[in-house]
């Protein structure tokens, strides 16, 4: 009895964060897409390649936590204006479309354009 009860307790202590366990379970359910945020990452990459003049300078840092995928984007200095757009309109459109892609993976997303 004691041993049966102890096992799940160990699991919880190891993972610590209940939300993270849920996110992993949800990702595993999606057999076609093992990596959480796979669609949103592909979409971020696609959008940036289409918008910037120097696609080879694009760097996307991905950070996953508690069902949220955070993209930190670096582009060539000359491409900053293109990616942000007038009054941030392009950046906002990127966020909206990436959020829709994240919904397909069952994750929330955030997109930061980093001024290096």
């Amino acid at each position: 009895m004691m041993a049966d009860g102890a096992e799940p307790v160990d699991d919880v202590q190891e993972d610590g964060d209940v939300n993270r366990v849920d996110a992993e379970v949800a990702a595993d359910d999606d057999a076609g897409n093992r990596r959480a945020g796979g669609t949103s990452l592909a979409v971020v990459r696609y959008l940036l390649d289409a918008i910037v003049a120097e696609p080879e300078a694009v760097v996307i840092d991905t950070e996953e936590r508690s069902g949220t995928v955070r993209f930190r984007i670096h582009v060539a200095p000359d491409d900053m204006g293109r990616v942000i757009g007038r009054r941030g309109r392009v950046a906002q459109a990127i966020r909206t479309v990436v959020a829709a892609a994240g919904a397909r993976d069952g994750v929330s997303t955030s997109v930061d354009i980093v001024d290096d």
């Binding site: 289409a50 918008i51 906002q92 459109a93 909206t96 479309v97 829709a100 919904a103 397909r104």
Partner: peptide, 24 residues
């Protein structure tokens, strides 16, 4: 439906981006 979004918000974003890409 996912690409239309609530009240067409995602569709509007796709249109903005399509214009940006063509302008480039």
């Amino acid at each position: 439906g996912l690409l239309v979004g609530p009240r067409g918000a995602t569709l509007a974003a796709v249109q903005d981006l399509a214009r940006t890409v063509v302008q480039r």
